[in-house]
């Protein structure tokens, strides 16, 4: 690895000042499971690494008075996965975090890093988008909240101002009768990158038979983590049936914009979006019915 300077500030404003001051020369280090690999394999020159490890404001999971959940950007994959708060609040965020590499990776890799790395195939980010979570960004001018769905502008690209970093995520409380599911398709069971990922949040009417609202977010089949908006429209207001889920799956496949690469062809990906959207919806609906 090439030589670099290293700073591990203890105050958020110091970190932001360093990033603003050094611009493109500085890179943020969270868990390093992506950055360290990129720096070594691509022989990337990074003059300054700003480590976030000493920033207490970026750590931990807490419930707010309005029922929403705040998850610090530096919370690790294992902490998110095992958190009882996360599991009861939005189960699919725990489910997505469980799929980040191995136990070793999940002990280093962070939720903020998974979002910040902005890979279209991210597993932990799409559930945040489907749960309508916002990212709290902090910079020299203070903080601002941006929907996680608007944060990623393309592969590896984030809508961050110079000197800004992700401090935390805020996940609103879901209405009653809500169930969630994140599921991905991979050729092997562990240690692989999603061919297709589907994050679903479904809210049922009091009759537990009609869909009140549905959020369907796609991973690995578009340049970002988009909502499958046609599929969501198809679902809203209609009674649950096998046929409805089939329509939604088809619509989601049409909403996807997959590419062909080493993992799968675009045509195969589109078919898998159909299959996995149906499966994810079925599980989310089951969970919505089981929820108190």
């Amino acid at each position: 690895m090439r030589r670099f300077d290293y700073a591990a500030p203890t105050q958020v404003f110091e970190a932001c000042a360093l990033l603003a001051d050094r611009g493109d020369e500085a890179r943020v280090l969270a868990g390093g499971t992506d950055l360290i690999v990129q720096m070594r394999e691509r022989d990337r020159r990074v003059p300054l690494i700003v480590s976030l490890r000493n920033l207490a404001e970026l750590k931990g999971i807490s419930q707010n008075a309005d029922g929403s959940l705040t998850i610090g950007a530096m919370t690790t994959g294992n902490e998110v996965h095992h958190s009882a708060l996360v599991q009861s609040h939005a189960f699919f965020i725990s489910e997505g975090a469980e799929l980040l590499g191995s136990i070793q990776i999940r002990n280093r890799g962070t939720l903020g890093g998974n979002v910040g790395n902005a890979a279209p195939s991210a597993d932990a980010a799409p559930p945040l988008v489907a749960a309508n979570a916002t990212a709290c960004l902090v910079g020299a001018k203070g903080t601002r909240d941006v929907p996680v769905g608007d944060l990623m502008t393309g592969p590896g690209q984030l809508a961050l101002e110079p000197g800004e970093l992700i401090q935390s995520f805020n996940v609103p409380a879901a209405p009653a009768h809500t169930g969630t599911r994140y599921v991905r398709h991979v050729p092997r069971r562990e240690m692989d990158i999603a061919v297709v990922g589907i994050a679903v949040q479904v809210t049922l009417e009091d009759d537990l038979a009609t869909i009140k609202d549905a959020s369907v977010v796609l991973s690995a089949v578009a340049p970002t983590w988009p909502h499958a908006t046609t599929a969501e429209e198809v679902l809203r207001g209609l009674p649950v049936s096998e046929q409805l889920l089939a329509h939604a799956g088809e619509a989601a496949a049409n909403d996807s914009q997959p590419i062909s690469d080493v993992r799968a062809s675009a045509a195969y990906r589109r078919m898998m979006v159909d299959v996995y959207t149906r499966r994810a919806l079925a599980t989310a609906i089951e969970r919505a019915r089981a929820a108190v």
Binding site: A8, S51, N107
Partner: peptide, 21 residues
């Protein structure tokens, strides 16, 4: 995982961890 060590009791990849971290 050949480089796995425990950091504060938890398994980590020592190849993805800077010594300063």
């Amino acid at each position: 995982g050949a480089c796995t060590v425990l950091i504060d009791g938890d398994p980590h990849h020592s190849c993805l961890t800077l010594a300063v971290e």
